[in-house]
Amino acid sequence: MSASGSLATGFDRRPWLLLSPALVSVALLLVVPAMFIVVYSFWLRTATGADQVTFSLDNWREVLTDPFYRDILIQTLRIAAISTITCALVGYIPAYYIAYAPTRHKTLLLVLLMLPFWVSYIIRTMSWINILGVSGAVNGVMLWAGIIDEPIQMLYNEVTVVLGLVHFLLPFMILNIYVSLDGIDRSLTDAARSLGCTGWQAFREVTLPLSVPGLAAGSLLCFVLGAGTYITPMVLGGPGDAMFANLVFEAIVTQLDWPLGSALSLLLLALLSALVLVYSRFLGIDQIAKSFR
């Protein structure tokens, strides 16, 4: 990447030293276990639910050719993408506010974002029934105000799945954008203003491009987490709103078909990894943004 060229003459041990704790942990607890998954994907499930050691391409054939999996996969990527875009659009506003507002309570505002996490995921996901349900708060207020005569059925469809996901993912997005906004040198926007830019122009030309690393990191996180979720569709989705991780969970836990579950998860893993590779290239390109300074 950047200025380290002068430091990196010959073999430089320092980055490897810095990386070693993380890499050793990931290798031991993730990469090696993942090999088991690869091996498993070529096995078969016996009639009782045990694993049959063999070499078979049946799981892969099924996973790659069955339109059922393809459709759910597309649905998963769509839901994850919608949720991510919503998070980016909605999340930028509070991130900007926290970064630039003349308030002493920045830390508090940030901590508050994580507040919903103190109430367990299942509980807070289930509690939407008290807000959006037919006898929930929103319907109650609208009935009382005379906007509607009958409660509206709002829950258990794709919209509520996205809503639940956005609620879960938004803090990650906001924090990532904030961290990036907060690191921007204020003199840059001031300079832009003094050169005659309007506030909006200064934002578009200076602030927004410089906050792209945060936006990108937040989006990657949101997309990946969104694509790997299974509890939200279970609690807030109707029939047909399943996501890919539900299939993985069902194959592994309900059907005890670990070989098939392995193949399914490797497919998801491959797709998401490709995305990360694109991201890291994108972040590399983004270094151009630094020449702005």
């Binding site: 993730l30 990946v224 890919f244 991780a245 993985v248 998801l268 893993l269 998401l272 990894s273 990360v276």
Partner: peptide, 8 residues
């Protein structure tokens, strides 16, 4: 670690 579905 966040790319692999947690159950896997």
């Amino acid at each position: 670690p966040i790319l692999v579905p947690e159950v896997v």
